[in-house]
């Protein structure tokens, strides 16, 4: 199957290692993936707070571009891969409301027409996918297992899914107790840590606005992850990764507690288990080096 890749703004800056590792892992698995040309921002939570119809129209433009780039195909929908949870969730939300609400659909269609884009049936012609979904369900755990050259035996890895990846519009995993990442971790030879905060919010943009609140939410996650014996925490969203990794210094000052938890993208760990180089998975861009060997018992 062929995939189109929608990076979103974060994967071109703070989430650069996410982009590098996703593309490298797909390449290692021989999966055809190509970037969506001339994509625009999904609108994130900010557009939703200012103007919802504009937010939907921004998402719809990306979908219309995807349909155009995909061409007729063989009548199959285009598979649009959005690695950022906010992009992923917003694209799904736009599809949902374009179907549910005739007023939304009318406004979006009119707006797309003015920029010369086709808007018919975007919700059917485009399938929004998260790379975690693609890896766990399309490519499959077995094929990933076969590629593992350096098993991460015994490493205690904490799967953190965050909020928007599993709710409210996603359907590829359980919204309360998702397991796709757990299964991937096991396929790499590592040991997934079972914990209750898998889908609890990391604080999102609050880390940049109301730090007292944002850092506290992230801190709770890290503290619980280390209490459970986690040696490395995995995320599937650039904002979660940024919040949980980059502000650890700030958290340690604020809460007088030394958490030193490496936080990487799930795709980076897969890449390392495939024996890809640090550069291929963007490991050199992390603030805290990734941990790949289990602590001695």
């Amino acid at each position: 199957m062929k995939y189109l890749y929608f990076p979103g703004c974060s994967l071109k800056s703070t989430g650069k290692p996410y982009e590098e590792s996703i593309l490298s892992v797909f390449r290692a698995l021989d999966v055809d993936i190509e970037e969506l040309k001339d994509w625009n921002c999904c609108g994130a939570t900010a557009y939703m707070a200012v103007d919802e119809l504009k937010s939907f129209s921004l998402c719809a433009r990306n979908m219309a571009l995807a349909v155009k780039q995909h061409g007729e195909g063989n009548g199959e929908p285009v598979q649009l891969v959005a690695p950022c949870s906010a992009c992923y969730s917003l694209l799904l939300k736009s599809q949902h409301y374009m179907e549910e609400n005739p007023e939304v659909s009318r406004v979006v269609k009119t707006a797309l027409k003015e920029v010369g884009l086709e808007s018919e049936g975007l919700s059917q012609k485009v399938r929004i996918r998260h790379p975690l979904d693609v890896l766990a369900n399309d490519i499959g755990i077995e094929r990933i297992k076969d590629q593992v050259k350096k098993p991460l035996t015994g490493l205690k890895v904490v799967p953190y899914y965050g909020c928007l990846l599993v709710r409210p519009y996603a359907t590829f995993d359980d919204p309360y107790n998702p397991t796709s990442m757990d299964r991937l971790i096991r396929a790499l030879g590592a040991e997934p840590v079972d914990w209750a905060l898998k889908t609890r919010c990391c604080g999102g943009t609050l880390s940049g606005t109301i730090q007292g609140v944002g850092l506290r939410l992230s801190y709770l996650l890290l503290k619980e992850a280390s209490r459970k014996g986690g040696e490395l925490l995995l995320t599937a969203c650039p904002l979660c990764q940024f919040d949980l990794e980059c502000f650890q210094g700030g958290m340690n000052n604020r809460f007088q507690h030394n958490v030193q938890m490496p936080v990487a993208y799930f795709s980076q760990l897969i890449g390392k288990a495939f024996n890809l180089s640090d550069r291929e998975v963007g490991a050199q861009r992390l603030f805290i080096p990734m941990k790949l060997e289990a602590a001695a018992p």
Partner: peptide, 10 residues
């Protein structure tokens, strides 16, 4: 303060 995590909606 709503960080838009959709817990309540779910």
């Amino acid at each position: 303060l709503c960080a838009s995590c959709y817990s309540c909606t779910a």
